[in-house]
Amino acid sequence: MKRFFPLLSFAGLAVLLFFGLGNADRKQIVPSPLIDRQAPAFQLPVLDQPERLISRDELLGQAYLLNVWASWCPPCRLEHNIVTQLAIDGPLPVYGLNYKDEPDDAQRWLQTLGNPYALILADRTGRTSIDFGVYGAPETFLIDAAGHIRYKFVGPLTAETVEHELLPAIAALDTGQRGSP
């Protein structure tokens, strides 16, 4: 038994490192304490109608996706096609949260790449985004009809993550709560 001790230690270490390093990518993701909690209250202007303010409670009654993006954010450009697809084919409306952006830059970005969002809220100071625990754009939140954050994805969405994570999370919402698209 004693003879095998080094071998066993090595095997144990190898297994530990294999799983530890294999998960390295996911470890960067900070788990949000806001999951299954009420979304933070906000009151933000609409990007192209700055005088029109929208609050959290006005969006109650229908589940929606909230996609945090900015024109200065290259990974946002990367996921833009996926977000567009999601807005066209997906089961829920996709709202944008324009994070610490210049409205002109944001508009130009939308003109160039297309505007997939049903509504865009402008968070120029980044305060609402901090309340949402945003630490790097893009981020995508799934908010149910009662205003609870049910799922969050950090980083650019891919076809794979939409299929394997986001759509199942949407499907897991109570069907009674889900509004029509």
Binding site: V30, P31, P33, I130, F132, G133, Y135
Partner: peptide
């Protein structure tokens, strides 16, 4: 900050 970003 913990309420927003967790114990991390």
């Amino acid at each position: 900050l913990v309420e927003r970003y967790g114990d991390f």
